[in-house]
Computed example of a mutant assay.
Amino acid sequence: MGIGTFSQIYVQIIFAVKGRNSLIKAEWENELYKYITGIIRNKDQKLLAINGMPDHIHILIGMRPNCCLSDLVREIKKSSNEFIKEKKFIKDVFAWQTGYGAFSYSHSSLNNVINYINNQKDHHKKKLFKEEYREFLNKFAIEYKDEYLFEWIEYV
């Protein structure tokens, strides 16, 4: 990035555990978030918030224009997947779902987005991830087809 380059890019990234399985456990989620924080900082990006649920994660970053978002998300998923396996956090196979959501925000929205991410546990007492994700897509006027959304496991 050259001298005289100025930017203000804020992006919320959302992705899910493969099959939407609830595999991220409370006992080790903070360690996972710290690890992902390190990946983001090593890529010279600014982490503003990270939190999630057992089946998905939200990350808000201040993005520098020299960053390719898809490369960053691929690195976060690949490295954190290896980290979970290496630490033997779960007995089953762990993998992130292919695809992700990325939603941009203005500077004036940051406090609301940070609060929203920090309060994921309370928020999801009232709303399923499936509903939340569709609301994001609709709010940002993103066209989608259900068959291309995350693989949803329906619990009976």
Rank of each mutant, 00 (worst) to 15 (best):
F83N: 00
F103R: 01
G99V: 07
L128M: 10
N119K: 08
W96C: 03
S80L: 04
E86S: 14
S109K: 06
H107G: 04
S104L: 06
T98D: 08
I84Y: 04
A95L: 07
K125V: 13
K85S: 13
K121V: 12
Q120A: 06
K125S: 15
N81L: 00
Q120K: 02
A102D: 04
I114F: 12
L128C: 10
Y100P: 07
Q120G: 00
K127I: 14
H123C: 06
E86C: 07
F94G: 03
N115V: 01
H107V: 12
K88H: 14
N119G: 14
D122M: 09
Q97S: 14
K91H: 08
F89W: 04
S109G: 11
Y100S: 08
T98S: 14
N81I: 00
A95G: 09
K87C: 12
N115A: 14
F89P: 07
Y100T: 02
N119F: 10
I84F: 04
S109Q: 15
V93E: 14
N81Q: 05
N115M: 08
T98N: 12
W96Y: 09
E82Q: 12
F89K: 00
H123D: 07
I90L: 05
K127H: 13
L128R: 11
K121N: 11
H123N: 12
F94E: 01
N118G: 13
K87N: 12
S106C: 13
V93P: 02
H123Q: 07
H124P: 15
V93N: 13
S109W: 03
F103Y: 13
I114D: 11
I114Y: 09
K121E: 13
H124Y: 07
Y100N: 04
Y100V: 05
F89G: 06
F103E: 04
A102R: 04
N118F: 06
G101C: 08
F83M: 02
I117E: 11
G99W: 08
H123A: 05
Q97R: 04
N115F: 10
F129M: 03
Q120S: 09
I90V: 15
K126R: 09
W96F: 14
S104V: 10
Q120F: 00
V113L: 07
G101P: 09
I117Q: 08
F83A: 01
Q120N: 11
K85H: 14
F89A: 04
Q97T: 06
K127Q: 14
K121W: 11
Y100R: 05
S109R: 05
